[in-house]
Design a protein around this nucleic acid. Structure first.
Lengths: 349, 349
DNA sequence: ATAGTTAACGGAATCGATTGCGTAAATTAA
DNA sequence: TTAATTTACGCAATCGATTCCGTTAACTAT
């Protein structure tokens, strides 16, 4: 197998009797090069199979036109859509996307952080791992003026760009929806409380109960570790076996909510009549399960797009403001069969 | 915002009174540097916050320790798992992962190909876009000795590494399973026939019918464009309205299969009694839909891991053999309720 | 016609890490 | 003790693109 030699701007320079400077400028449409020359050089480049070397350009400019993404796992519907949005926006701007997953491990997050830094990324988009508390590993980006956008699972104690949904309002609305459907004893599947998303959702749940005069019962609030199907199953079984079982569940994610529906059905509990359920995320399974799952939908792909745009803008304006801008996106209550006990006037928010 | 200056090996050299060569070698554990010196230098590097510049190293070595991934879309369960497998394997070997989606457009695939090439990736992992026929855009990788691994949706006419599942056997087994359940008129939801995966699945379906003495009826074979939920819905409705409707469906993906189940239920057709359904992929929705969907599962994440390993091995052995190795992975028929008309001895393959 | 301006391009340093070749000192062999 | 190795390191070129200064020639204004 013969390996073809790389065509560089020096090869073009020699071939066309121009200096490498001129070749470089021509390829970048520099104004001090005549249209004619630019055309000539570009055509020759095309013909000779020239392809720019991003490593060389990156080294010289100390930037790689690459956005780094650091998330827990890719194969979750929300994360996949998020990345999709990032990729689309980045690519349109001529940027690449480097991905890395922490698998929710703090150690991995640190290590991936370093690796991404070593690639001299233009900016970093992060959704925190479940374990992360310390934020020290992000400091080196700040020191170097590399923008970080935290998305969805964001830190409380770190000043930076953030793109989130209004988890509080979503939790409040979801709970309120169940109340409006006539639920009196609403359980909550809560996620880890040190992560903003789950904490805010629970806050919304609590406030909704309070504001509608419903008592808060600790034994109706289940603290989950991972909000998995199995955990949801176990929790539901336990709840339904109570002497005084709940008549509604607001789950902080769809996976656990679906498991609740399936568990209830198996136990002969009617959904939504005896148990209304609402989830969070609007995963594909939500519209497939029967009865279909009411849930909270949020624009994952859009969040990705916005996050990417933040970084692109930042690097274009080169450190304009020091303001850490937080983008809060709205959510939408999607009412399906799992919670529809009455005819509803569709709410739009 | 003050931007800290980068710490380079030259800074370390000056600080420690060594030459940059020694610093570089020490950091790479070169054998000609004494253990003591290595330890000294590494500790100083750590303390001074030194971080290697991958761009510089990459330029010098003409490789970036980065694997490029070129797929249709990220937010499909199969693809997300595939990438996850790639990322995990790559990272363990100290490689990064660049992703790009073609959105099933030929144009995008070409453009992404070039962008990835420009980043001097170590190797490329590709699942072809729906539109792709010409393979010209991949030639430049071959010319440069950069390995390409085609995965799942692979070309017929291009010599390279390939990682696939045995679609033919899977299609055959899925159909055979329906036959064994007593189905006599089995429909097939077929994908675009210029893509190996769908073509092979259909071949398996046809052979299974033939070998079991069942007639092949053209009007039971539906050619899909995208195997979407909507398409599946429409096709199912049409099939069930026939004077002589099918009693089984083998769908080339789960999305369309699920839509078939839901459509049948809505039309009052019993699944699996009147219509047995089996899908392909074992997406999360398959185990959620009711009745749960029988399907073909395949190891997406493992495919990703193998693909990544191919590239890592290739670049380590620097052009060892010219053999284009094809890896074929097995699949498994997952029998669930949508096709279980009789008691089954679980098959394992 | 002459100074001033502009257009179009070239020279050479630079980004940070790597590495082939060379060398001085230390160690071993004989 | 002297030659032969080995150990431990330094010099300087190199990877490919970019860009700060120039420079030359053509052009414009007066």
């Amino acid at each position: 197998m013969k390996i073809k030699k790389e065509v560089t701007i020096y090869d073009l320079a020699k071939e066309l009797n121009y200096s490498p400077s001129t070749i470089s400028r021509a390829l970048n449409n520099h104004k001090s090069i005549s249209k004619k020359t630019i055309k000539l050089i570009k055509e020759a480049a095309e013909e000779m199979g020239y392809r720019p070397n991003n490593l060389a350009a990156g080294l010289r400019n100390n930037k790689s036109n690459t956005i780094g993404v650091l998330i827990s796992r890719i194969n979750r519907p929300f994360m996949a859509s998020l990345i999709s949005g990032i990729e689309e926006t980045a690519r349109k701007a001529g940027h690449n996307v480097l991905i890395s997953q922490s698998n929710d491990k703090y150690e991995n997050e640190i290590s991936n952080c370093n690796t991404l830094y070593d690639s001299r990324i233009t900016g970093l988009i992060v959704s925190l791992s479940m374990e992360t508390v310390e934020m020290e590993h992000f400091k080196k980006f700040v020191d170097k003026g590399i923008p970080i956008v935290f998305v969805d699972r964001v830190p409380d104690n770190f000043n930076s760009y953030k793109v989130v949904i209004d988890n509080y309002t979503a939790g409040y609305s979801a709970t309120k929806h169940l109340i409006e459907q006539g639920c009196k004893r609403i359980a909550h599947f809560a996620g880890a409380q040190h992560r903003n998303v789950y904490r805010e959702r629970k806050k919304g749940y609590l406030d909704a109960l309070r504001e509608h005069g419903l008592p808060i019962e600790d034994n109706l609030i289940v603290n989950f570790k991972t909000l998995s199907f199995e955990e949801g199953n176990k929790a539901t079984k336990k709840l339904l076996k109570m002497g005084n079982p709940p008549d509604g569940i607001f789950s902080a994610n769809d996976t656990a909510a679906v498991s609740a529906i399936m568990c209830a059905k198996k136990m002969g509990v009617e959904v939504p009549e005896e148990l209304a359920v609402i989830g969070f995320n609007d995963d594909p399974i939500a519209s497939i399960v029967q009865p279909s799952l009411s849930t909270v939908s949020h624009p994952a792909s859009k969040m990705g797009a916005i996050s990417a745009k933040r970084i692109l803008d930042h690097s274009a304006n080169t450190y304009d403001t020091e303001l850490s801008e937080i983008t809060v996106l709205g959510t939408e209550i999607v009412v399906r069969d799992s919670s529809r006990k009455k005819d509803i006037v569709l709410e739009s928010e």
